[in-house]
Structures are given as C-alpha cells and as structure tokens.
Amino acid sequence: MFWLQQIFNGITQGSIYALMAIGYSIILGIIGLVTFVHGEVIMIGAFAGFFMVTFLKANFFLAVLAGFAASWLLGIIIERVCYRPFRSGPREIALIATIGLSILLRSLSQVTFGTEQKLMPDLLNSHFIPLGQIRITNIQLLIIFTVFILALLLHQFFYKTKTGIALRAVSMNKQAAALLGVHVNRTILLGNALGCALGGVSGVLLGIYYNSVHPVMGASVAMKAFTATVFGGIGSIPGAALGGILLGIFENLGVAIFSSGYRDIISFSILILILLIRPQGILGRKELER
C-alpha cells in the first residue's frame, strides 16, 4: 500500500510535469529551438494565480485562468523580443536572448515580489478522501482532473481544427506552410503563446500543490520540463505527457527509497540515462524525412 500511495503521489506530480512538458514541446516544435525562459514563464503564471487568490479571493478556476492569461501574454512578449527579430540571423542569438530574458524576469520578480517564499492560501479546504488503503487529497484529484481536461482539449485542438493542423504543419516545415497560404508569423506567435500559457497553468497547479510560490522556483522546474520532454521524445506531444507522468512516478519512488533531498538527483540521472541509452526518447521519432 505504501508503494501504491507513492505511485499515486507520483502521478499527481507527474501530471503537472506533463503539462509543463507539453507546453515545452509545443514551443520547441514551433520555434525549433530549446527555450531557457520557460521556468520564468511557469513562475510568472504561478504568481498570477497567487495574486488572484490572495488579493481577489478568487477560486481555483479563476486562479488557473489567471495563470493561463498572464503566461499567454508573456509568450507574446517572448516571441516579439527573443524570436522574431532574429529569425533570419544565426539561431544562437535567439537562444541567448531567452537566457537573458530569463535572468531579467527572475531578478525583476525578486525585486518586485520580494525574495522570500510566499504561502499560497488553502483555497480548496484541503482534506483526505479515503480510497481503499491509500489516502488521496481533493487537491490531488483536482490537479489530475485539470490536466486531463486540458490534454483532451489540446488533442481536439491539434487534430480537429484547421488552426491546430496549421500549427503542426508550421512545426514541420515553415516554407511549405507559407506556400499554402498559412500565415506563418501569426501561427508561430500563437504556438508560443499557447505553450507558455500551459506553462503558466502548471505553475499555478504547482503553487497549489506545494502551498507556495517563489521567484526562483523556475530554474529547477524548467529542468524538469526539459527532462520530461527528452524522456518522452522531442517533437512528440503525447510523448511529453507520458514522459512527465513517468518522471513524476520515478521521482516519488526514488524519494521513498532514498530521501527527499535526492529528488533532483533522481530526475537528472534519468535525463542522463535517457540521453545515453535512447536519445530519441520513448515515443520520439528519428530525424525528419524531407
């Protein structure tokens, strides 16, 4: 039962990682570059949720919406500042621009929000729901439910709408998409905003799960998002979701066996192992055929 409990905790945490990794994958696909600002996107989303709850006494749904909206806006800014001006230049410039923006955002938040950890109010009247012999909190259920619904909506969006198909097409080949009359610049902007918005929601969920938000929380969660993306397979959105959940489970099992201080060591060992054994990840595809 102890192990079942750990696995369930892992799934909860993993579903938050999954959401981050899905957002990360969308950005990676549409921009074609890794981003270093994703951690700060998650942090800003978490703070947007925190302020909604603390000052406006908002409910769970509004907090999630605030995280989504704040990070969506940030995504638009990131695209304008870091990607669009350098699209025809060497790719490293955009990469370095995201590092710069990440440092700027982290420092600005420390200045404006303060450097101390903020307590997220318990807005859901957290309590245990006994289920057989494992104990589940209502918050855990709500987090899993939220991620599940978002994943379903995303699937519908990407496979059933014209805009979703255009996003996938632009991720594969921008020139071919432009030749068909797809507005490539607008599609890239949308993809980046959407990926960031999902990061923002995961930030809010993270804040609620751990009862706290912090201006430097981004650094380590961004690495988790990256690990989950690589684990599942770069370029595959279902892979990112699977990678996130598996990462959460492994982390929690590892913490149960060793100690909670080893959490990051466990996930980054997984990253290194995956890169050594199966660099394309679980569901990843080999190089694109053109």
Binding site: I165, A166, A169, M172, L179, V182, R290
Partner: peptide, 22 residues
C-alpha cells in the same frame, strides 16, 4: 514546389485541409 514538400507526419486528409488555407 520541387520535392513536393508534403508534411510527412500529417495524414493525407490533413495535408489536403492545409491546401484550403489560401
């Protein structure tokens, strides 16, 4: 275009739907 530039990881129908954008 030369080389056809179809999208290898989209279905045939999705490829066709993209043609509708213009």
């Amino acid at each position: 275009p030369e080389g056809r530039l179809i999208f290898p990881y989209l279905t045939v129908e999705e490829n066709l739907i993209l043609g509708d954008f213009g």
